[in-house]
Design a binder for these strands. Structure first.
Lengths: 345, 345
DNA sequence: GTTTTCTGTGGAAGGGCTTTCAGGAACTTA
DNA sequence: TAAGTTCCTGAAAGCCCTTCCACAGAAAAC
């Protein structure tokens, strides 16, 4: 059987209380007894029993992450930030896939077992109100990433600022007929990005032409998909409208689909049309997309930090942090034709 | 405080043992008392305390996965198989990132806490022998994915068969001068794929020319990287050797780098040179790579099933399963110019 | 030298569950 | 009707830890 503190206590001729104190670095132990206990523990190759600890401490040093992580690359990178930060402080991470709102509710209904985790990280999906109460009542900390709820800490990307910067980049390059390839307006980011695009155009006195706004009707991934970009552009071309000189695209993955559709029609990027997109997923590099970079790793990192703070201090005021995306210039808008080839991860 | 079985026992006027039996579907309870208990449990919104259960049952219904999952797309997809299969049987998944052998040993040394998980899934990294004993002694089930050790269950891809099929595909298209862009020979898959490539060529009576074999000296990701493919090809071109008519490339990601290098030198795929690679990561679709598909989702799924079997029956004979990759024909070897555009996930 | 304070220590209690064990009630069998 | 079975149930023990409480002995104060 496994070694327990009783074994150590016996061998070191001390009480179990003392053993526990030594192992938890309590100061109230003579260095002499401490040494004795440490030596025995090492000799027996003692490993504390995580569950017993969690039961006694009412704390598990474990977080759960609910992630639609199979949908795109965004989550993988956020997850990396989460996991590295967590590993550094000795926390474990339990992963739950929930690709749709439905799956989220299912998870929340069935598997959300109290006592299991010290906190929950919810990614991208919208927290249904009936569960808000649940988290509040149970005092189970919840941190939202890439989504928002007024009663919980959240970490997001500033879509308004990002879309503004992207649009201004295009404007600064001299483009005056600019379209927007958008995702499904059901999604909050899609709405925010569109709004900001229009406003920025207005501010700069450049007319927004409605026929150049392509909103997606795809529901899968809210239209943030290669397919949506591909079909959207194909349909746009079918309409026979004259092409604008540039497009702001609401995600890299759509831009990739869109480029394929353009290429099939012998329209080239950036020679014939400029593109700025959003996200800076790993693929963006391979397709030379000029894009608005979301600091995904940092978001994951920060989410964990927020969570740890919240666990320490449950009554701290709720905070909502916005990351501002930064423009990464590659060659898809012609601003810079230098092909950056470094495979930096 | 949270609702416990004591609360239920009191309200339902039964003993705690009976409550526990009801909740665990023990048959030795009258349907009358069962109903009474179930009703109360529901009314109080009882949730079993996972840690207390784990402590009492000596079973946690939790698996840990040690994954170098930030290195490439392979793992994400395997992980998806793992997580979905696990969710279906009510298991939790704890994720640990370990990108190098060193990090693996660190994890094994520090964090491998007995009692925490029912089993461990180790991906791609090589299990150091000193830890083999550890798992054996502790009777902590271990299943290896994409790696091998004689004393544990493992699930792999048949590199030999895959390289053979890839090479034969090229041969069947009439190619007679075929090169191989390989990863670092330190890695087992790289060695296996090279060996099989050579053998297949021999079997078909086609000469292998050493100057057409490019082995990578990159250590990062064992040369399974875009950079390795890019630089490898650039250096090859610099040598001024006449190009073979086709290349077998040991991974998609290398092929993508290689294609970039070729393009810069005005060499086009598949017009000037044919390429078959290995893996079928999601990117492969976007680059139209003809490639050997590894059934990643299925591997994850099977890994979990094996693990569950192993937990049920610790003394079952050790099994080692080889998946045979299947050829996915796209346009990179000219065999099929139909661009498949579906964004199927 | 006596009383008070302080330190370090042992061990019981408690955390929430499963499981074993013993016993009461209902039922058979002689 | 007594003895033997069967079935269900309650309660205690155990899983392994942390923490609280009490106490002995040393140190400090008087």
């Amino acid at each position: 059987m496994a070694v327990t503190i009783y074994d150590i206590a016996r061998e070191a001729k001390v009480g179990i209380g003392t053993v526990s104190r030594v192992l938890n670095n309590s100061p109230k132990v003579t260095s002499e007894t401490r040494d004795r206990v440490v030596t025995v523990a090492k000799r027996l190759n003692y490993q504390p029993h995580a569950f017993a600890q969690a039961l006694a401490r009412k704390r598990s040093n474990t977080l759960s992450a609910v992630i639609p992580f199979f949908t795109n690359y965004f989550f993988i990178q956020v997850l990396q930030g989460v996991q590295e930060t967590l590993a550094a402080v000795g926390y474990d991470l339990i992963i739950h896939g929930a690709n749709t709102q439905l799956q989220l509710e299912e998870y929340l209904d069935h598997s959300m077992r109290k006592g299991r985790v010290d906190g929950t990280l919810l990614f991208s999906l919208t927290l249904p109100d009936r569960f808000a109460d649940f988290f509040l009542e149970k005092k189970n900390p919840l941190v939202l990433v890439d989504t928002y709820h007024p009663l919980f800490d959240s970490i997001r990307v500033d879509n308004t600022e990002g879309a503004k910067k992207a649009t201004e980049h295009l404007l600064s390059l001299g483009h005056r007929t600019i379209g927007m390839m958008n995702a499904n307006l059901n999604s909050v980011p899609a709405r925010e990005r569109l709004l900001s695009f229009k406003e920025t155009m207005n501010v700069h006195g450049v007319e927004v032409q409605d026929e150049y706004i392509i909103n997606s009707s795809y529901t899968k991934n809210d239209g943030f998909s290669r397919e949506a970009g591909y079909e959207g552009m194909l349909e746009f071309l079918r309409r026979g409208v004259k092409l604008p000189s540039a497009f702001f695209v609401s995600s890299d993955i759509q831009a990739i689909g869109m480029i394929a559709a353009l290429r099939e029609n012998n329209i080239h990027v950036p020679e014939d049309i400029a593109i700025v997109s959003f996200d800076d997923i790993e693929l963006a590099k391979y397709f030379n997309l000029t894009t608005m970079q979301q600091p995904m790793f940092n978001m994951g990192e920060l989410a964990v930090k927020k969570m740890l703070e919240r666990i320490e201090n449950p009554s701290a005021p709720i905070s909502s942090i916005n990351f501002t995306p930064t423009l990464v210039v590659r060659s898809s808008c012609g601003a810079n034709k230098n092909f950056v080839l470094n495979d930096n991860r």
